[in-house]
Each structure stands twice: as structure tokens, then as C-alpha cells.
Design a protein around this nucleic acid. Structure first.
Lengths: 135, 135
DNA sequence: TATTGTTATACTCTATAACTATA
DNA sequence: TATAGTTATAGAGTATAACAATA
């Protein structure tokens, strides 16, 4: 059985990315959150007061698609919104959000570990190094 | 601005895969086809008489999700369906489908070239080699 | 003018369950 | 029982256009 896409890097990139997403979403599953919302939480944790647009640029999420995510996290009382410069809104973790972060990080690590288990440490480091260069 | 996901291979895998998909879908755009349907065409071209299920296993597409794709390609007269063993249906490229393949391959190559342009040939080969191992 | 937040909407892709038919 | 094809449907994620508010 010939596999015509097997010689294409693009195919394997998509294939392995899908694997990685499945792994991390499965780990997030018990927490009732999915990877995009978890990523937003981490972006706010690392940058208290960051705006929606800045998060979008950082994580490659459209401005308009940020809205329902921030709404969801706000209604869940995991983040709070405070007025910033101009029309901007500064985002912060709420106390509940802060207590949730360790579990999010653990789930994130669990997904990442599934990748690590599939390759050698040297390959892991090398892939990370090279893919970070790809823009 | 701290990027909390930057140290994660999973993040960069998804990020670069999204890039690759955008590039190839843009190349397919003028042909009015998207990457999954194009991949199915190539699978049939490389394996005349292959069944839907076999394509799904090869390309990681659910059996049920194969149906609308095959229907689409059949209605487009790019493939033909012939009865096979049991309930199976063997798929072949139609004459129209065969004349279309060169353009599909060219678009595929254009997307792949966007990846190649972003890295050195050695890195390309190395990434391909390592990602193929990841199962 | 450029940026931010927003609304509304459409499209693509994936996932699940259940059903029929063959072997 | 296992596999193939099918139907129907839901959900996640992404993309686009347009608008108001602010610098």
C-alpha cells in the first residue's frame, strides 16, 4: 500500500500535531477545559494585565475569536477584566483561576510527556530547537 | 512579554502544522479543493482500487467522514466507484481526475516548498526523518 | 489612521453513535 | 463477530466582514 503523502514534511507535521493535540486535550478533559482556553490562562498568568489582542498575537488566535474565550473564562470566574488604556481591557487571574493553574500545568505537562515518551531526549530537544526557528 | 507555551514542543508542532496547512490550502485554493480531498485523490492515484476505509486508515480520517469526501469527488467526476469484495467499493481516478492530478501535485509541492524555504535542506531532511518516527 | 473590542456568521474538520450489509 | 459503508449530528476551531470606541 503506497502512501503518497509520506514523503511530505507538511503531512507529518499535521499528523504529529494532531497527535499532540489529542494527548493534551485528553489530559485537560477532566478539568473541563480545552487547549486554547488553557493557553489563554497561561498567557495571562505569565503576563498579568495583558490584553486580548496581545494574547491573540502571541497564540495566533484571531481577535474576534478571543471574545468567546474570554467570556467563558470570565463567567467561570477564572479571570477578571479591568479597564486599561483606551478601549483596552487588562486581564488578570482571579483567586479561583490562580488555584486552578497548577492543575492546568500538570495536564499540559502530561500531554507534553506523551510526546517525550515517543522520542529520545536528544530528538526532543532538537525538534523543539528547529521548530521554534520555523516562522 | 513572556510566552509560556514557547518551551513546549506540542505548541510549536501545532503552530507549524497550522502554517503548513494554510500554505497548502492556499495553493489548492484556485483548484477549488482542500487538503483532505486532495490527499484522498493522491491515495487513489497511488493505489487504484483502494477502499474508503483503507484510505481513512492511511490518512487518519474516520470512516464516516470519508463518505462526504468520496461523494464530493464522485459528483465532481474526478473518481469512479466500482463494486469490490463484499460491501466494499473500489475507487479509481476518472479520466478527468487523472488530468487533474498534475495540478494537485503542483499545489502540494508549492505548499511544501513554503516549508522548505523556511529552513535549510539539512534541517528539512532531519525534521522529516524524525517526525516520521513519531507514532 | 491604526488599534481594540465586539457581533454575527460561515466554513472546515473532527468525533460519536447507530444502523445495514456483507464475510 | 469483525469489517465496510452509511446516516445524522454535534462540536471544536478558524476565518471574514463590519462596526463603535479610542488613541
Amino acid at each position: 500500500m503506497k502512501h503518497p503523502l509520506d514523503p511530505l514534511l507538511g503531512f507529518h507535521l499535521v499528523r504529529t500535531a494532531t497527535m499532540a493535540l489529542r494527548a493534551v486535550n485528553q489530559a485537560y478533559g477532566d478539568l473541563g477545559i480545552r487547549h486554547p482556553d488553557a493557553a489563554v490562562m497561561m498567557a495571562i498568568e505569565a503576563n498579568p494585565g495583558i490584553t486580548q489582542s496581545a494574547i491573540g498575537r502571541m497564540l495566533n488566535i484571531q481577535r474576534s475569536n478571543m471574545v468567546p474565550m474570554v467570556t467563558r473564562l470570565t463567567e467561570r470566574d477564572w479571570i477578571v477584566r479591568e479597564p486599561g488604556a483606551g478601549k483596552t481591557i487588562r486581564l488578570f487571574l482571579s483567586p479561583e483561576g490562580k488555584t486552578t493553574m497548577p492543575r492546568l500545568h500538570e495536564a499540559s505537562r502530561a500531554g507534553e510527556d506523551r510526546l517525550k515518551d515517543a522520542i529520545t531526549p536528544e530528538t526532543y530537544r532538537m525538534l523543539l530547537l528547529e521548530l521554534r526557528k520555523l516562522r
